[in-house]
Every structure is written in structure tokens, then in C-alpha cells.
Design a protein around this nucleic acid. Structure first.
Length: 577
DNA sequence: GCCGTTTTCGGCCCGACTGTTTTCAGTCG
């Protein structure tokens, strides 16, 4: 699937045009197009074949042609021409914090600096001094920016970001000067990966809050410090931004700083049509005279209502389902964590889990679940110590013994069975029929061609014993790209065979992701949300999967493990017969 | 370069902070 490649390339064209000081709206069009392509769940090559590229918002004639050109030739002529004029490596320079297209252009034109190393040498040798607008402080910022980039500022997964944010929130919350506090930004929207952490505080004494914030022990470096906004780098090189507002603007500020950027743009466009204005201080009515009157600011709901919109949960403030959001259609009641009645994919010491079945079950009960499936790996997955057929008998006995002592809770005898390179399952039919629930997964042979990988998953769906496909795309955030599958084909197979697709809540997976969930849902797919816990500490990861489900517009009715045990068992039994 | 319930041309979101400037451009979110 070439979606990401093409999105990257269009983004690069955008930046190069910025360096060239081209029309800002043209530049924005390229970035917007790139963003939208990156978030399309379907293969862009398929969309092109079906002549549906223009269905993607922000794709007009010119960009459509460039996409086609890339799919046919592997190149885009316009890009090749741009990098004849401007060295491609200037793109790395623009990536350095405090450097944008203007400075990159300046350094290139005046000093022929074309990459980060040359820039560092020039900065260290004082060669940048004397260029217009460049003095000591700017050089200092450039050198520190280079260090930040080279230390690696990759996006964190949702779980890692949540952990860091919780530390900051806890520290600030204890201050008497802090009235309300909330995370904002992409973390509040529960994006799969997060770059910076945004925190919003409402306080009557901003200075005190800022002082405390920048002096917290986890802070390594202060990058920005103002009256209402400060930014720091933590020891792990994570940027944390703090905004402080007056209590009366908390809602407007929260709306504003939660974003997404595109959602905010959309809100302002809605506002403009009503002769209104949106900023972080409130929603304003603008009179013909130009006089502005604040009409809402205290809560997000108030602000959205003032714009004629109902409340929109943060997870939906994305481009996913945007047309629905602003068409006046009612937003469904999204699934919540409390709707989840059990976890159908966890591991125990029988394979690569760290805790016993009993321990896992005990924690699951504390979380308020009604059931838990111990879905250990099958033998083919050697590294995980998959359970042999002989051991399965012992494991089943252990579960039966535990169940006989449990009240209002049931442990299910499950498996996460390997799908081999031909799409066959790692246990025979007789063994598979013994399980309460079977989920099937791919853990090897990722490098196969799209057709073959897709066929494997489709074949697994067709097994009458398989209830769900675990982590369908195999992505490992920041480590491994998803394997090349035709999601549409797999959705079709899932729907035809009543097979559920998993939303795996494990923070490095989050697979399916929210875009895929939204797409699969549109194809009629049903889901299961699992933690894939390998220890009792992992069971609470379920909240991340639920967040992804919400981002994909799912309601509780779309998710198998919101059912009470009896109904769940019935669904599993009746499936595909 | 894209887009349309002000529709095929003329628009295209808004503000904080920094470092350089004597009032603002660049960067960032």
C-alpha cells in the first residue's frame, strides 16, 4: 500500500514550495491533501483504479494527476524538478525546531548550507552571525534544536504519552492555585501516537503555575516561557506545553487546545458563516460595526452550542467522519469503557504471559468484568512458548477447577491460534472445537505479497471455529509498518462469515487503528476490543482500545464483548454455522 | 491547489511567543 509514501511526498512538495515562498494556499493544499491521504484506510491504488481519488477531500485535478503519475512511474515530475532547484536535504533543516522555511532558504541562498551537519558547523563557527535577523540567541536556539532532532523526537504511543501526562497533571493538580486541569491536544483526542503533550489549567495566578511547571524534576529544558504559555522538554525529550487561562475561558480554551487543527479550522469556518468568531477566549458575535460580543466561553458544550452544534466528543474532532460531524446528523452514543463486560484476548503463564490464570482472573473481576478468555499462543509461535495439545488438556482442567469456585464470573478456555503462511490454523479441527473461543492471528510471514497475506486472513475468517481476527494489520507503532493487506477484502470476508475484527488495545499495537475501524464499520464489520494483556498490569489497557473504537464512531452495539456472558456464548456458538 | 446552500472566481483560521527589531517577521500549534 503506497498511501503513506504518497502522503509523505506531497508533504515534501508542500515544504519545498514553502522554501520557494510560493502561494501559501497552494502550500496548504498540498499539506492538507497529504494529511487526508495518510488517513485513508483503503489502498490508494484501488481508489485510483476505481476512479475514486477525487472522493478524498482536498484532492483536485492537479494532485490526482500527480498521484496517478506516482503509481505508474514511482516518481512525480514536479517533485523531481523542485529538488533540482532546492536540495532535498533542506527538508531536514526545516524539521529543526526554531527553523522554518524562511531561515532554511536564507542559509541556503547566502551560505549554500544544504544539510544539518553543514548548518551545525556554520553555527559553531559563527558563520551565521550577521545574516539578517540572526544574532547569538538565534544561533543558540538552532544548536539546541539540532540536538533535539538528533536525539530522536519520534511520536510516542498513546500509552506512553498518557503515563507522562499523568505525572505532570498530578504535580500541578496539587497546587492550590490550580482550579481546573485537563490534558488537551492529540492526547485528549486519544490519537494512536502523540508528539507533544498539551495541558490546560484554569488559574487566577498563572505565574505561580508556570513557575512550578518549569521547575518540575522531570523537566530538562525550558523552551518557551510566557504569561499564558510555556513549553518544556522532559528528560525523555518529550515536549510538554502548558497553557493557563482564566476560569471564564476554560471551555473555549479547552476546545481550542484540544483541536485537531483541522477541526478548529472547520469551527472557524462555521463561525464565519454566522458572522461569528472563535478563539481560545470564547465565541464572539461580530457586529457590522466590527464590535465583538462574547456569547460563550465557560464550557465546551456552551461554545459548540453557540455555533449551532451539539457536543462533540474529543475523539471525534478529527477528519474521520468529518462530513457527518458538520452535516447536522446526530452523533451516535459512542461506546464507553463501562460498557465492556470482559476481555477475550489475554495471556497466562501457559504461554508468554507473566501471571497465572487465577491472577489474571482475579484482576479481571476487580475491573468489573463478567468473563475473561485466556487466549494463549499456539505451538508454532515458539518464542512465545505456544501451548502444546497435551498441555491444553491440563490448561482446560485448571480453568474448569477455577470456574467451579467462581461466582458471577467465568474464565473462558481460549486461544490465539497462529495462521500459517498458507492460511491454515495451527491446531486441528478436533482441538479447535474444544475451545470456548478461538481468535486467529498472524505473527510471521509479514513480507508476503498483499494478495497472499489477504488470502491468509480471509481463509482464517472462513474457518467455522474462528470468532475473531486479532490485531489484523500487525502494526507495531514506531517499529513495524502494518503488513500489506487489502482491508476491504478482509472486511468483506469478516462480514460474510460473521467474524469479528479485533481492536487490540496494547499500546504499541492499537490495531485496527481508528481510521481502519471507521472504514471497517462502514463495510458492516463487527468488532471485539481486547487488551492482549501479558500480565495483570496490562488489563487496564482496554481503555485505549475503547478510545480507538470511539474515534472510529463505534457504539456499544458494534462490539462483541459488551454482551453479557450468556449472549456472548450464544453468538460464538451460532457464528458461521 | 482546492472548493462551492455568498458556487466556476475569489476566497482560503487565529493568536502567543521569541528575537530581532524600533513595529514586525518567523515559527509554532
Amino acid at each position: 500500500m503506497k498511501n503513506k509514501e504518497i502522503a509523505d511526498l506531497l508533504d515534501r512538495i508542500g515544504v519545498l514550495l514553502e522554501i520557494k515562498d510560493d502561494n501559501v494556499f497552494k502550500i496548504r493544499a498540498y499539506h492538507k491533501a497529504a494529511e487526508n491521504i495518510a488517513s485513508v484506510a483503503e489502498d490508494i491504488a484501488t481508489l485510483r483504479q476505481e476512479n475514486r481519488l477525487s472522493e478524498i477531500p482536498g484532492i483536485g485535478k492537479a494532485i490526482e494527476e500527480k498521484i496517478a503519475e506516482y503509481l505508474d512511474t514511482g516518481k512525480i515530475k514536479a517533485y523531481q524538478e523542485l529538488i533540482q532547484e532546492i536540495p532535498e536535504t533542506l527538508l531536514d533543516i526545516v524539521n529543526i525546531p526554531s527553523i522554518g522555511p524562511k531561515k532554511a532558504k536564507l542559509f541556503w541562498e547566502e551560505l549554500r548550507i544544504k544539510n544539518v551537519d553543514e548548518l551545525r558547523w556554520a553555527a559553531e563557527d559563527g558563520k551565521l552571525l550577521g545574516l539578517p535577523g540572526i544574532k547569538e540567541k538565534t544561533i543558540e536556539n538552532i544548536l539546541s534544536g539540532i540536538k533535539v532532532v538528533q536525539a530522536g523526537q519520534e511520536r510516542m504511543n498513546l500509552g506512553a504519552a498518557t503515563q507522562i501526562a499523568e505525572q505532570f497533571v498530578a504535580a500541578l493538580k496539587s497546587l492550590p492555585e490550580v482550579k481546573e486541569i485537563s490534558v488537551a491536544g492529540s492526547l485528549r483526542r486519544s490519537r494512536e501516537t502523540i508528539r507533544d503533550i498539551d495541558i490546560l489549567v484554569d488559574s487566577t495566578d498563572p505565574q505561580k503555575v508556570m513557575e512550578t511547571f518549569v521547575c518540575l524534576p522531570q523537566v530538562k529544558q525550558i523552551t518557551v516561557q510566557g504569561d499564558t504559555k510555556s513549553s518544556v522538554l522532559t528528560k525523555e525529550n518529550v515536549q510538554v506545553d502548558l497553557r493557563v487561562v482564566e476560569p471564564k475561558s476554560f471551555g473555549a480554551a479547552l476546545l481550542y487546545f484540544t483541536g485537531s487543527k483541522n477541526f478548529n479550522v472547520k469551527l472557524r469556518q462555521v463561525a464565519m458563516k454566522k458572522n461569528m468568531k472563535v478563539n481560545e477566549y470564547g465565541i464572539f458575535r461580530v457586529a457590522v460595526s466590527g464590535k465583538e460580543t462574547c456569547v460563550a466561553s465557560c464550557t465546551e458544550e456552551e461554545c459548540l452550542n453557540a455555533l449551532g452544534l451539539g457536543y462533540i466528543p474529543p475523539e471525534l474532532r478529527e477528519d474521520i467522519g468529518e462530513s457527518e460531524l458538520f452535516s447536522g446528523r446526530k452523533i451516535p452514543k459512542l461506546i464507553e469503557l463501562k460498557d465492556i463486560r470482559g476481555d477475550l484476548h489475554v495471556h497466562s503463564t501457559w504461554s508468554d504471559g507473566r501471571n497465572t490464570i487465577a491472577q489474571m482472573a482475579e484482576t479481571a473481576q476487580k475491573l468489573g468484568y463478567e468473563y475473561l478468555s485466556i487466549s494463549d499462543h499456539s505451538p508454532r509461535l515458539r518464542v512465545a512458548g505456544g501451548v502444546s495439545p497435551e498441555n491444553l488438556k491440563k490448561k482446560k482442567k485448571e480453568i474448569e477447577d477455577l470456574n467451579s469456585k467462581l461466582k458471577n464470573f467465568r474464565i473462558l478456555f481460549g486461544t490465539e491460534v497462529e495462521i500459517d503462511s498458507d492460511g491454515n490454523l495451527d491446531y486441528n479441527e478436533k482441538i479447535l472445537s474444544e475451545f470456548d473461543i478461538v481468535i486467529a492471528a498472524i505473527h510471521s510471514g509479514f513480507e508476503q505479497k498483499q494478495a497472499q497475506l489477504t488470502k491468509r486472513l480471509v481463509k482464517a475468517c472462513q474457518s467455522k471455529y474462528v470468532t475473531a481476527i486479532a490485531h489484523p494489520t500487525g502494526v507495531h507503532l514506531g517499529k513495524r509498518e502494518p503488513y500489506d493487506i487489502d482491508l476491504k477484502e478482509i472486511c468483506k470476508a469478516a462480514v460474510d462469515t460473521n467474524t469479528f475484527l479485533e481492536i487490540n488495545s496494547f499500546p504499541v499495537r492499537l490495531d485496527l487503528n481508528s481510521h481502519n475501524v471507521y472504514f471497517a464499520h462502514s463495510q458492516g464489520v463487527q468488532f471485539v476490543i481486547n487488551s492482549d494483556a501479558h500480565s495483570i498490569d496490562h488489563l487496564p489497557f482496554m481503555k485505549f482500545g475503547v478510545a480507538i473504537a470511539r474515534r472510529g464512531w463505534l457504539t456499544k452495539e458494534d462490539v462483541l464483548n459488551t454482551l453479557p456472558l450468556k449472549q456472548l456464548e450464544k453468538v460464538i456458538k451460532n457464528r458461521n454455522r
